[in-house]
Design a protein around this nucleic acid. Structure first.
Length: 597
RNA sequence: GGUCUUGUAGCUCAGCUGGAUAGAGCAACAGCCUUCUAAGCUGUGGGUCAUGGGUUCGAAUCCCAUCGAGAUCACCA
């Protein structure tokens, strides 16, 4: 039972005996005592003043006196306005620290073999261009959410749907065929995804030239866009692909192979991974079958031009296209097929899609369509809808070349981390390999924390001209605190200080130390809340709060130079516990912490 | 136009399941390294919580309206 619920129970008993009112313990408002007041926990007494028929102050005094007298857990109290501040016994805090110190997976609820399965889809790239900053947010959120749900006892299956077919990839293929001079990643030294992306751009440029020429010759813009030879050829290529044309298929496999090799590098660098990968080329046919079944069951209808639609007007939405007039499938068709396949493959309890908020409508429709197709789980899909990453000028636009490339950004962050470390004279006795490793951890830590500390639902701004900070509320600041603690712990070992044994729970400890223990006790509920709300930001902000508090303690108190052996041992345990929680919490964000930096 | 999201310090963000004087970081300025890592710590200045109403003992937080920003309503994905 948490301290908070214990206090809630005690207060409800006291209120009952004093004022004869029954209060649900969980409804009693408890909060952390604000820094400027004395005490650890605060009870809001306003709800009782009516029954007490006394002033808020008097009511608080009365409740406080009774609690204090009856429970050794509470050692003193004070009342300010309608707030009853309780001070919890140091013994309780010391015993609590012992529990935390001894539990190396503190806060984590490990899944078991029969835990429910949560499938989390994230990343979901198109295979026609490299990953950019928007994908970084998606990947980091998806990975972190997965780790957080695991820590809440779910069996998580991380999945990725690769959009590997369609007109977009045909555009890259066609441009490479026409203008590529048989370039390969090997011959150019380019990462495969970047090489393919290059030809996607080449296509677009050549296509624009053709459109301009047609307009010059008197065509309207729409006609020009529709009739430009390149786009016609790309469409033919898509049809050839669907017919399994061997040459087109061969080219497709080759170029997608380049892209996957490139993506794999990016994923590894980013530190994300998947348990099961689905490919649109393998699921879109299942989607088509489902849609056709829907037509047979009169859930969907066919228009005179043979296109297939779902009428969702009764749900307040529009009509939705499911199959084009030429029989080819659209994005929605594919998503229906993928969903069905996944539920066939796994006993999914909860399906989560990490997809940007620009697709809110899409997922609303997807749920309804699956429901119409008779899948009871259709309504249970969770669209974890996150906000866009914007530049100070607004959205990233590939046409204007303002897209921030994922590989470039990570490399820059790592470079900056290394430069900073050298400039500050850190790591002087480390090998170049060790320096590179710390630079990697810190650079990526800065980037990941920068993105994950923001409430995922909100749009966020990234300014490429101002490099991401390494001071203040940042990843490196948190990593630094961890490194400092580890340094102290190493020194303690060198000095043969044995701090692993149980501490004296009658020690007198300071307010600062008590606060730190109290912060540590918050960790499990932070993980729970982060899971319930799908918010890595809660974990990030918690880490910052904890570490900030620790740094003040570190500044004001000496650990190794403390003369009282029992106190020294206590502080070592406290520091070690903070380091452990920081490590676990940062791990939930997909951020590593270095032993030194 | 319909639906949804959003508006907190110069900038980037917390706080939003109603509670005490609205918090951090960056930027600016002023201090602290013979003392466990100064990527740290301390201090100063900086706010009409978009605006107006309402509910309440109490509103940045909940409700309504207005204004601003964004997303979406494609035979794109």
């Amino acid at each position: 039972m948490s301290l908070e619920s214990k206090i809630q129970f005690i207060v409800s008993q006291s209120v009952l005996s004093l004022y004869k009112i029954e209060t649900e313990a969980s409804h009693i408002q408890i909060q952390k005592t604000k820094k400027e007041f004395e005490g650890d926990l605060t009870v809001v007494v306003f709800p009782f003043v009516k029954a007490a028929r006394k002033s808020p102050e008097a009511t608080g005094q009365e409740i406080g006196a009774l609690i204090c007298q009856q429970n050794p857990l509470v050692t003193s109290f004070n009342v300010i306005k309608g707030f009853l501040n309780l001070t919890i016994s140091k013994t309780y805090w010391l015993d609590t620290l012992t529990e935390i110190f001894e539990n190396h997976s503190y806060g984590i609820k490990l899944p078991t073999a029969d835990s429910d399965i949560m499938m989390i889809e994230y990343s979901s790239p198109n295979t026609n261009k490299p990953l950019h900053l928007g994908h970084i947010r998606n990947n980091l959120l998806g990975f972190s959410i997965s780790e957080i749900q695991k820590a809440n006892g779910w069996q998580v299956v991380k999945t990725n749907i690769v959009n590997d077919r369609g007109i977009h990839i045909c555009k890259s293929m066609l441009a490479w065929q026409k203008f590529g001079n048989a370039e390969t990643p090997q011959s150019t030294g380019m990462k495969g995804d970047h090489l393919v992306g290059k030809y996607y751009v080449v296509f677009d440029q050549a296509y624009k030239v053709q459109i301009a020429e047609l307009i010059e010759k008197g065509a309207t813009e729409d006609e020009a866009k529709k009739n430009a030879p390149l786009i016609v050829e790309a469409q033919q290529m898509l049809l050839a692909w669907e017919r399994n044309d061997p040459q087109v298929r061969q080219l497709w496999e080759t170029m997608n192979g380049w892209v996957y090799a490139g993506f794999d590098q990016t994923y590894i660098r980013m530190g994300v991974n998947f348990d099961k990968i689905y490919y649109e080329s393998e699921t879109y046919l299942i989607g088509k079958e489902e849609v056709e079944r829907g037509v047979r069951e009169n859930e969907f209808y066919v228009r005179p031009d043979k296109s297939v639609w779902a009428d969702l007007t009764s749900k307040g939405l529009d009509e939705k296209l499911l199959l084009r007039a030429d029989g080819t499938s659209v994005y929605m068709t594919q998503d229906i097929g993928t969903a069905k396949l996944r539920y066939d493959d796994y006993d999914i309890k909860k399906m989560v899609y990490v997809v940007g908020n620009e697709q809110n409508y899409h997922f609303q429709v997807l749920s309804l369509l699956l429901d119409k197709l008779g899948y009871s789980w259709g309504n249970d899909l969770v669209h974890f809808s996150y906000g866009m990453v914007e530049l100070p000028e607004g959205k990233m636009k590939s046409r204007e070349g303002t897209v921030v490339d994922a590989d470039d950004l990570m490399a820059e962050m790592i470079d900056t981390a290394r430069d900073t470390a050298i400039e500050l004279g850190k790591l002087e006795q480390c090998t170049s390999q060790e320096i590179a490793e710390v630079a990697r951890i810190v650079g990526l830590g800065a980037l990941k924390y920068f993105i994950l500390k923001v409430d995922p639902r909100k749009n966020m701004t990234f300014n490429p001209r101002e490099s991401i900070d390494f001071n203040g509320n940042t990843g490196p600041f948190i990593q630094y605190t961890h490194a400092r603690i580890k340094s102290v712990l190493r020194k303690a070992v060198e000095q043969h200080i044995d701090f692993g044994t149980k501490i004296d729970n009658t020690l007198l400890i300071s307010e600062k130390e008590t606060n730190l223990i109290q912060l540590l006790t918050d960790f499990p509920s932070v993980i729970k809340q982060a899971g319930d709300e799908f918010s890595p930001a809660l974990v990030a902000n918690y880490c910052y709060e904890l570490v900030k508090e620790f740094n003040q303690f570190y500044h004001d108190f000496s650990i190794l130079k403390e003369e009282n052996e029992a106190l020294k041992k206590f502080r070592l345990q406290l520091a070690a516990s903070v380091a452990n929680v920081v490590k676990i919490a940062m791990g939930l964000l997909g951020i590593e912490v270095p032993e030194r930096m």
